[in-house]
Design a protein around this nucleic acid. Structure first.
Lengths: 332, 332
DNA sequence: CTGAAAGCGCTTACAG
DNA sequence: CTGAAAGCGCTTACAG
């Protein structure tokens, strides 16, 4: 209400609107005095250009949409932070939305930002059957997927993490410490390509090292009880070194174990994906396979900016996972 | 690029642009056939109205700015989530920005969203000497502060938490368990009104219960080492029940103590502000004074929406803190 | 019930 | 170097 407009500035500076526009955007030549007058008027009036009006003529709104499943999850909070920060430093405002792992909410958010005429979007995709996502992709606006890809949407560049290096390092560490069998807890979310890839990469590497008969894989549902029974079954199979593909499961396991007689790092060895703060605060600290989420966020945002700038045909990137051994892995 | 416009819809439906606009906004009367034709055209063309163009005529852009210090902090992530969610359900898109506790970044973000012609903003304020904040307030747009107030900016409604009930309950619990002296670790951020209030409320209540001579207060700097020396000094003063006003300090303390011989809940009793997930996962679990951040977020957003709707002169609200006793508080 | 016209705050050819 | 005019995609009186 009562925003000051370019017309007010023009009036104050005693010149035309078009000249003010040119002075502000430093397009074309303007005399020093004019420029000075404009600057003074802008200063005095606290003029802030209306970027929406600007956008109507000149395309770019300098806004981008960012969709993550849930910022309350520390991993996505870190990711969102890195992206938002990179974008802001490049002069873009970011609309944030959360999908709560639901395609419906994803669609609602995408439709909203489309109506805001975003310059593009960075998305952690939810499933493949999303109308709005299709629509977004149809606009030819720059879009990049981060953290995971969406099946069937192959044309979109994605920045995600490569589970292989971290998993290999963890498994070799486990072997070196004398363990003969190894288990993998794969988490509940079965339609996440990233989670699926982790599991299959685990199977391949682990079988190579320990032999197929010494490799155990179990999945959990969302309840804590299911995590408990998985732990019990693993133990029953004589597995005392476990890798968690889905960090919330590891969190549950750590808290379950804290109340039991089983001591982590002695009776059972544990490695989890995701370098959560929490894993550095427990006693013993939990070994992790870090996805380097900040790196993923920055690279994703940078890739997006490159696409915006029209540079090259953007290519997907993978960030190597890194294994950080800590006291939660003991000796067999 | 190549967005479909209302003109395309009009052409397709074989009617005028103004009629399409009316049909879409359900303003004025339109014949059923016309309406049907419009709907069909919208469907076929995948028309999404340009809310910026819309905003140029009708004021509201249906966007709001949200500024928090850092979403990587679990507390602010929860807060941002609650706000974003409430706003989205009311049909608003939210621009998110992080200030990293810096007034400069706060100003940059506010200027950006102002240029996006937001309908208003919800802010966790940083200090009082912010030009852009002044400017924002000067526009008369609805603004609400959440989590804390800003000194000198009294006119803005704020939704924050009331430390009193939680602190009182915690202190009574500590007394009931036989402790004779109590300590308070106040955190490093001295210009946060909320933190200051916590400390002073603590002093008053604690002095009332234990007597002034049995009440100890220390502050920390950001380093871990400072937390360690505070713990040592407290111990030296014979204090074995501690309340942390700033949860990151409590996190440091928990991890420091995990590596020492001092056992939480036996040798030392601990209560921390903020109901972080982490505090439920340690062993023993840490007693907390919860700020009910989700409630703060929802109420803040609701208050904002009320202001937007022009209802009444909005009044500040306080959400009571709640004490959750857990095993980290033992017996004297 | 519907259409033509003006205007929101800008930018950008087009003249001068 | 500067100004008048058109137009970006909408909405909203104003006529009919």
């Amino acid at each position: 209400m009562a925003y000051v407009t370019i017309r007010d500035v023009a009036r104050r500076a005693g010149i035309s609107v078009s000249t003010v526009s040119r002075a502000l955007n430093e397009t074309g030549r303007i005399s020093p005095q004019t420029k000075a007058a404009v600057e003074r008027a802008v200063e005095e009036l606290h003029y802030i250009p209306d970027s929406r009006a600007k956008a109507m003529r000149s395309l770019s709104t300098r806004t981008v949409g960012l969709l993550v499943p849930d910022i309350r999850n520390g991993y996505f909070a870190d990711l969102a932070y890195a992206i938002q920060d990179t974008l802001f430093n490049a002069g873009y405002c970011t609309f944030i939305g959360t999908s709560s792992e639901s395609a419906t909410r994803q669609d609602a958010f995408i439709t909203s930002i489309l109506s805001q005429r975003i310059d593009g979007a960075i998305i952690v995709p939810q499933g493949e059957q999303s109308d709005a996502l299709r629509l977004l992709l149809g606009t030819k606006l720059p879009v990049v997927f981060v953290d995971r890809q969406a099946k069937g949407l192959g044309g979109v560049p994605v920045v995600d993490s490569n589970p292989e290096p971290g998993l290999a390092a963890a498994l070799h560490d486990i072997q070196r410490r004398g363990f003969a069998r190894v288990g993998y807890v794969s988490g509940p979310v079965l339609d996440s390509p990233s989670l699926q890839e982790r599991e299959s990469v685990f199977r391949v590497i682990a079988a190579g090292i320990f032999g197929e008969e010494n490799v155990f894989v179990e999945s959990t549902s969302f309840e804590r009880a299911s995590c408990e029974s998985v732990l019990r079954r693993m133990h029953g199979s004589g597995v005392d070194a476990l890798i968690f593909g889905y960090s919330p499961d590891a969190v549950s396991a750590v808290s379950l174990l804290a109340d039991s007689a089983v001591r982590i790092g002695r009776d059972i060895s544990i490695v989890s994906f995701d370098d959560l703060e929490l894993f550095r605060l427990t006693s013993p600290q939990i070994s992790v396979i870090s996805q380097q989420v900040q790196e993923i966020g920055q690279r994703g945002a940078q890739l997006f900016l490159d696409m915006l700038a029209g540079e090259t045909q953007a290519a997907s990137q993978r960030v190597d996972t890194v294994y950080a051994p800590r006291a939660s892995v003991g000796k067999a």
